[in-house]
Design a protein around this nucleic acid. Structure first.
Lengths: 249, 249
DNA sequence: CCGCCGCATTGACCTAGGTCAAGAGCGACA
DNA sequence: TGTCGCTCTTGACCTAGGTCAATGCGGCGG
């Protein structure tokens, strides 16, 4: 467990008395003057999973929804297959990010949830969370903000930017999200395959390969096996900033 | 005003004592056993705008967010321009649908809001709404559902479906949304131009034109100037259903 | 009633990126 | 340590859809 705690890409681990440092839910509450009883109440709603291995399915498209989950360590993708079996990756979830918000509307998941590397989640019954939010306006506000943020994130890929910009924006987004959680903004370990990225960005894996090569040749970044080091953040931001404009983290 | 009330594409008009029939907010509350005082309280938060003409801007990208709005009659698009001035249409909003949910996260709008035809809105301070939701769990649930639904809607265009399917799905989606509000599922008046549709679907206007022609030749639908009549719903659903799967309305 | 203007149509051509096919690394596991 | 199986790379070719340009047309203002 020690190695988990020292991996800068991981949220640290709370115990029965403390929230995880990057807890997606508590963050907004801790500074809102709630008494200990309420915080404890929120805390007791949260259940940690065991370590889930790569490939584990958290849920399947159409399955019943009842809990949302925050990634504590590891990474998860949500995806669905179209009629011809081609996979579409809706999103990737890094430590501190919340999975399942798109299932609230229908009460069932519109996509599969798949673990990308050894992962631990914090799970919360959404109904209990909403009920508690009734008594903790800051928690309610936090939930609204999380939902709203996801609208923007989901819409990112709707635009018709060229492959190059979509990939740049994807990498910059990863960088910002890791950095916001206390990780490195320039050295990124990628928990997903080229193929996953391709399905997410609506590109062929070959295109990812070629664009990555291009970035490297231009000195924008160094690309290794499942890792990227950003060498020229300025230029990367110039390339992708337009697409990411208006997004937090 | 009489013509508004009889246009099946329009939500009917509430007065100071009654909600609009298709009110996006009240729907979930009316059958939840709230007392008159609470419903009145919700009702008094809602302000109707004057008739806004085509082209009016409701808000601009980066502008401060404080109210959400439901379309009462008319139609609105949200859009933004990328660095080269090419427009991206994030979404269209028909009577009964709620605008501005993607602005909650940041407190400022990530896009412009533009009126497409004479439009009346119901506006509500989001802060007041959230405060009231604290005391009306069904209202809170409704808000969560609206937000969550928008995540799915925003992600629709992320997939790489061919032009033909994207356009079919768009038309089917319009049909379902009008039908859900009591309008016709087969005869659609389109409040937006071909260009707007193109910017939304990440296509060139010429492609819309050609695909529409194709649909018409195949007997799928009859396409007129700013209107479409669906002639073969079965085949349209077969064509677009996969893309829309898992979406309400 | 006429002329203008923005939207829609149509055809010819072009290109970004997909597809196909053939390797090359690298890790896992026996 | 060898082999199997992914994942990634690279090159050749192809196509969906974009772009450009010319034309039609309906609505609106004068």
């Amino acid at each position: 467990m020690a190695d988990l705690e020292h991996d800068p890409a991981c949220a640290d681990i709370g115990d029965e008395l403390h929230f995880c440092r990057t807890c997606a839910f508590a963050a907004a509450c801790l500074n809102s003057g709630y008494d200990k009883a309420r915080l404890t109440r929120l805390h007791t709603l949260i259940e940690h999973t065991e370590i889930l291995p790569r490939g584990a399915r958290l849920f399947r498209e159409g399955g019943p929804f009842s809990t949302i989950a925050a990634v504590r360590t590891g990474a998860v993708k949500t995806c669905r297959a179209d009629a011809e079996g081609r996979e579409q990756v809706l999103g990737f979830f890094l430590p501190g990010e919340v999975i399942g918000l798109n299932a609230i509307a229908n009460g069932c998941y519109p996509c599969d949830g798949v673990v990308l590397e050894d992962t631990v989640l914090c799970q919360v019954s959404f109904a209990s969370m909403a009920d508690l939010a009734t008594r903790m306006p800051a928690l309610q506000a936090r939930l609204f903000a999380l939902l709203s943020e996801d609208i923007g994130r989901a819409g990112l890929l709707a635009g018709d930017f060229p492959a190059r910009e979509r990939l740049a924006a994807f990498i910059l987004s990863l960088s910002r999200r890791y950095a916001a959680r206390g990780g490195s903004a320039t050295r990124l370990r990628l928990p997903m395959t080229w193929s996953d990225i391709a399905c997410h960005l609506r590109l062929a894996p070959e295109t990812i390969s070629r664009q990555m090569k291009g970035f490297q040749e231009e000195g924008l970044m160094s690309v290794g096996r499942r890792e990227v080091t950003i060498d020229d953040m300025q230029r990367l931001e110039a390339l992708a900033g337009d697409m990411l404009r208006g997004l937090p983290a």
